[in-house]
């Protein structure tokens, strides 16, 4: 009686979402495979001979790595600060975080554009302080992308870090302080062990999401700083090579999903989520 009961339940609850995955994820991925073999499958070899692709691939990897390291470090500090700051200040930090989490990436990127354009807000600030005379050349450079990307990704590290910090046992902390642990020892042996799993899962997430970055590099990095995503768009919409676009897409999907699955296996990333 009991097993059949669970069987029906499983059938009704599990199969519909699995069918949805097959349609919404399986079919598009199969289409990528079909498209990439459109011209006999040479696209997989051809893309690695294109300097524009290898350059974009390298640029994307470097960008994702740099953004991940910066975001994880700053996110850890931000999470620590929300925990350790006076109530009014942590309230402000939290409000800023929520504001950023709930406004769209396009809106946030446009905000950075207004800061970085040659006569934008940064120029206005520096020139009213008398520090620069000429309009600044920051917009559409590699340097222009990084702060915006870190800002976009920050909530994905800060939120798990905050959860981890709130689980630190105050008694343990008290005990450490009472027995004379200095700030370095407390940081190293109480706070860091609690924070580390959250930082790893946040960092993995930021890394895989950064590999697929499109909007922010497009608007702030400009055509000289194409990411793999930008190059895919170019292949499909401008250069009319859907087979190349599809094989680059497959590579990108495979890379992000494999990295995610490995990290999930090693660090149980998806279990940190709820």
């Amino acid at each position: 009686m009991q097993p059949t009961r669970t069987q029906t339940e499983k059938r009704w609850l599990l199969w519909p979402p699995l069918a949805f995955f097959a349609i919404a994820l399986g079919i598009p991925m199969a289409m990528l495979l079909v498209q990439s073999f459109d011209r006999g499958g040479g696209a997989f070899v051809e893309m690695f001979t294109m300097s524009s692709f290898t350059a974009a691939l390298l640029r994307t990897l470097v960008m994702a790595a740099v953004v991940t390291v910066l975001t994880t470090l700053i996110g850890a500090v931000y999470g620590l600060a929300i925990w350790a700051a006076p109530r009014w200040f942590s309230g402000i930090l939290l409000a800023w975080l929520m504001l950023s989490l709930w406004t769209s990436i396009v809106v946030r990127t446009v905000g950075w554009m207004l800061l970085e354009i040659p006569r934008g807000a940064i120029y206005w600030l520096l020139s009213s302080l008398g520090l620069v005379e000429e309009p600044i050349e920051l917009y559409q450079t590699a340097l222009a992308m990084y702060p915006a990307m870190v800002a976009v990704m920050l909530p994905f590290v800060v939120l798990p870090a905050m959860t981890a910090m709130s689980s630190i046992d105050r008694e343990q902390l008290n005990a450490a302080v009472i027995f004379g642990a200095g700030p370095t020892l407390v940081l190293r042996s109480v706070i860091l062990p609690a924070l580390m799993p959250a930082l790893i899962s946040g960092g993995v997430l930021v890394f895989v999401m950064s590999l697929g970055f499109y909007v922010t590099p497009l608007l702030l990095g400009g055509p000289a700083n194409l990411t793999v995503s930008g190059l895919i768009n170019l292949q499909v919409n401008t250069l009319n090579r859907p087979d190349l676009g599809a094989s680059m897409s497959l590579l990108l999907v495979a890379a992000t999903v494999v990295i995610y699955l490995i990290a999930d296996r090693l660090f149980k990333v998806s279990e940190k989520w709820g």
Partner: peptide, 17 residues
């Protein structure tokens, strides 16, 4: 997993459909 899915690559697949 869909969180890790690069949106441009996924969009190209749907576009193929």
């Amino acid at each position: 997993v869909p969180i890790a899915l690069p949106p441009v690559a996924y969009a190209i697949g749907l576009y193929g459909v």
